[in-house]
């Protein structure tokens, strides 16, 4: 059997809310894949269903969500078939998440060290948690002493790094990042993105990036999927989609990004180091 290079395969996923007249098809027959070591972007406006799709991978969508159809294959296994206990062992250890607002995504009454330590304790027994926490903090370029700090004592950028550290605690194969930089200042965004780039290369991490920011897409993603109102409207390599958008919606999305200069083909390539800070 040939080795499947896709770590994640979502096939015809349907996630609905409500019944009857009030049924909302948040994710309507969506399929995408993430290859091993790849960074894939899921792009769309708010309400497009991109977040729900990402959360559904380990059934983390809100309680009211109903998984009406399709398969989510992670390393060949259908996540939708797993029991709650099995899902729990996958969450945080094989598939990790980082979220949009780091300031509220941490528990305010526990130290960062405790929370990272919890992630370690859940999935890896017999490890020296303190040492491991320090190692993780170093990995994201944060000083060790922050382990005894509380979330409110840290900045957004620092917290997001902590979230990344916590997500990597058990060396997951897939990192799902739900708009990780949206709530951060522009300069900090850049730092976080660089960190993600660095880590994905260092550790061989596959990343599913949810975003509405094409700048991020062009910097990080190998491939892109565009979603609108719960459906996939376009997909392809970053280069293709960004230079040659086929679907009207994609064109609209890209045209909506404010720029100081008119779009030039070259200004969007990742090879171009003169990456326009201004045009973001």
């Amino acid at each position: 059997m040939s080795e499947n290079t896709n770590i994640l395969e979502v096939q015809n996923l349907r996630v609905h809310f409500g019944r009857g007249d009030e049924r909302v098809k948040a994710v309507d027959d969506v399929s995408f894949t993430v290859g091993r070591g790849e960074t894939v972007a899921l792009v769309g406006e708010s309400g497009s269903g991109k977040s729900i799709s990402a959360l559904s991978i380990t059934k983390l969508a809100p309680r009211a969500a109903r998984y009406e159809g399709g398969r989510i294959l992670f390393n060949g296994q259908n996540m939708l078939d797993l029991s709650e206990a099995e899902l729990r062992s996958v969450r945080g250890s094989q598939i990790s998440y980082i979220f949009q607002e780091p300031m509220v995504s941490f528990n305010p009454v526990f130290t960062i060290g405790w929370q990272i330590g919890e992630a370690i304790k859940l999935h890896r027994k017999g490890i020296d948690r303190k040492a491991e926490t320090k190692r993780l903090l170093k990995l994201v370029h944060l000083p060790e002493r922050l382990a005894s700090a509380y979330p409110h004592q840290m900045s957004g950028g620092q917290l997001q790094r902590c979230m990344i550290a916590m997500a990597l605690a058990c060396s997951p194969e897939l990192l799902v990042a739900d708009e990780p930089t949206t709530a951060l200042d522009v300069t900090v965004q850049r730092e976080i993105l660089n960190l993600l780039l660095e880590l994905s290369e260092k550790v061989g991490l596959s990343i599913l990036m949810i975003t509405h920011n094409f700048g991020i897409v062009s910097d990080l993603a190998d491939r892109v999927y565009v979603m609108k109102k719960g459906r996939l409207v376009e997909e392809g390599t970053t280069k293709n989609v960004l230079y040659n958008p086929q679907h009207d919606y994609t064109k609209q999305l890209m045209a909506a990004v404010p720029r100081l200069r008119p779009v030039e083909q070259n200004s969007l390539t990742t090879e171009n180091t003169e990456n326009t800070e201004e045009s973001k």
């Binding site: 380990t58 983390l60 729990r88 062992s89 996958v90 969450r91 945080g92 250890s93 990790s96 998440y97 979220f99 607002e101 509220v104 995504s105 941490f106 528990n107 305010p108 009454v109 526990f110 919890e118 992630a119 859940l122 999935h123 979230m163 916590m166």
Partner: peptide
Amino acid sequence: KEYVRTAFAKGVSKPRVLFVHVLKNAMI
């Protein structure tokens, strides 16, 4: 609150989320 979702995403079980994460905040 958001931190509950983070806890679930880490793989924390529901009882533990309630009795450890939520309770300590609720106690205030």
